Computed example of a mutant assay.
Amino acid sequence: MIKELLLQKIITLLDQRIELVRIAIESAKESRDNETKSSVGDKYETGRTLMQMEVEKNRIQLNKTENLKHELLQIDTSKKSTIVEFGSIVKTTQNNYFISSALGKIEINNEIYYCISLASPIGKLLHTKQVGDQFSFQGKVNLINEVY
């Protein structure tokens, strides 16, 4: 259930991010297309070029966010993990982690979960560990209490 709630919240955040990026793309396109030709031709071309660069930057961001959403939608929230892998929730003596993507801190039912990727420093330490394993991060020894 927690995994489903976390995933729903993340997908909602990503949908909001996707909408904002789409709005930014449309705004940049509109600015580019409405740029009036001034008496100085170079200024006109520079403005259009800058707006086109903004459109491209936002398209890249949109593509990355949509790919991330697609990847996260592959998580089977009913799967029970015994080892830490993509889609696992890990509860340690220090923190709770959702192994998904580097999206930061999310609160569910008054508990904090850190959404991290397997490529992150702590994600690398946790990968393939199981309940009862220990790991050291930033000088603190942590015990894995739950994996699911």
Rank of each mutant, 00 (worst) to 15 (best):
E26I: 10
N96F: 04
S78M: 12
I112D: 10
T77L: 05
F135A: 04
S136H: 04
T12P: 00
I18V: 14
S100H: 03
V55P: 03
A28K: 02
N63Q: 15
T128I: 00
Q134C: 08
S38N: 09
Q94P: 00
S27R: 15
K79N: 09
K124E: 07
E45W: 06
V141Q: 09
K43Q: 11
N109M: 12
L7Y: 02
K64P: 03
R32T: 07
T93K: 04
Y44R: 05
K105H: 10
E19A: 14
E26L: 14
V90H: 01
S117A: 09
N95M: 11
F98R: 06
V84G: 03
A119C: 00
T82D: 12
L68H: 04
K9Q: 11
L73S: 14
T46K: 09
R17F: 07
G41T: 07
S78Q: 15
L103D: 03
S101R: 09
I106M: 14
V40E: 12
R22F: 09
N96G: 04
L143H: 05
G104N: 10
I25G: 03
E26H: 14
E56K: 08
N58C: 05
G104M: 07
E85K: 12
Q138G: 01
A119M: 06
T46H: 03
K37Q: 11
G123A: 01
E56D: 13
K3D: 01
E45V: 06
T46N: 00
V21F: 03
E19G: 05
L103C: 10
I89T: 06
E56A: 11
